[in-house]
Design a binder for these strands. Sequence first.
DNA 1: TCAAAAGTGTTCGCATTACACCCATGC
DNA 2: GCATGGGTGTAATGCGAACACTTTTGA
Lengths: 220, 220
Amino acid sequence: MQTNFTIDCVIYSFHLGKLQVLLTERNEYPYKDWWALPGFFVDKEEEMEEAVERILYELTGLKGIYMEQLGAFAGVKRHPQGRILTVAYSTIVKYDEVESKIKPMTSYMRQAKWFAVDSLPDLAFDHREIIQKSLQKLKSTLYYSTIPYELLPEKFTLSQLQQVYEAILGKTLDKRNFRKKIVNAGYLRELSEVQKGVSYRAARLYKFDKRKFFKTTGVE
Amino acid sequence: MQTNFTIDCVIYSFHLGKLQVLLTERNEYPYKDWWALPGFFVDKEEEMEEAVERILYELTGLKGIYMEQLGAFAGVKRHPQGRILTVAYSTIVKYDEVESKIKPMTSYMRQAKWFAVDSLPDLAFDHREIIQKSLQKLKSTLYYSTIPYELLPEKFTLSQLQQVYEAILGKTLDKRNFRKKIVNAGYLRELSEVQKGVSYRAARLYKFDKRKFFKTTGVE
DNA sequence: TCAAAAGTGTTCGCATTACACCCATGC
DNA sequence: GCATGGGTGTAATGCGAACACTTTTGA
């Protein structure tokens, strides 16, 4: 049995040097044929976190991912068929682990697709506003969060890490300062391995050390 | 006509050197006779911000006060009579402007009373958790917000300002460093007036300059 | 040998921290 | 004259910002 409020998920990943958001194409009124954030009514006995996890799983096959509440959106006019409150959550997934598994959840939506955050289509409801707010929060907490590492493969180069930061912040960063800051923070483990298959000097690989991160930041 | 979600308000003020929260004593089940955050069902055609403003007005006679959404709380078991979602907001009021006007809103609650945040009674629902989260947010945004000035009279001394910071952060601050930082920030206007009616050296009075604050922080 | 990206230090200014004494006033 | 809070400066340290060249590698 359903409640009368929904959750909407802002699901991010990183691909082709850009921050991407997963959108679904609606197959039902209202906003039939529009792109929208994946979202659903929450069940009566279902915790909201479970609902996000369910949607994420049905859409991407992934479980147990970091997720965070953004807030409630309940504008009187946000939904053309009467007032419906939605609670927005955001989560982060690795593009490579997900790409092949993306599938629409139900017949309510026709397809699911990644869009770069800097070139979104028109969106249903107030979903553009939700994404805007989510991005704002993402930017402001970036340096104290594990998010960049959720977006990268286990082993990564410092340049890749910098690209993630630049994609999210929407601006370029100084290479030397960035490296100094990140390496100084002390939660990267330098590997003896280097990149393979590139036609230029191979970069050193690093791993993120969660333990040290939590020890030094105390966050989460 | 009512929706089936509520808003709960965390209403702060500052008195006797302590940060205070306004609580109401419930006169209805569930949680009859318990203290709780002032809250209500939102009307069908009412924006949430309007609802907070309404509650604030009915309880304190104040209008047009800064308020902010904290988030949605919808734990399946938070309400004994079935799942009810609540959206928490926080606002700040000046104790002196409000003190005499405090009154219960409806027969749903018997009385309203200020409690210091460091000595709260047992609370209904998940209201302790809501206050906890609200306080956390308050602390982390304190230095970039106008909140301390919302809590003080128009003209105040630097010591009073420091007391507000200390009460909210729950720790003591170094007087010289605090003054340097605040004065350097550049949005206080030093008046030629001093305190009156104290039995020791009268302190200089200051005013908060909102214009300069927004110019230098860009926030809000 | 060329193209592409990797990798690397220093300087400057500013903010934060720690720390202790004299001053002005009312009673 | 004494109790009470008001008011003040300096040194050490750390962080962020600006800035350009050499090295390595594969093709």
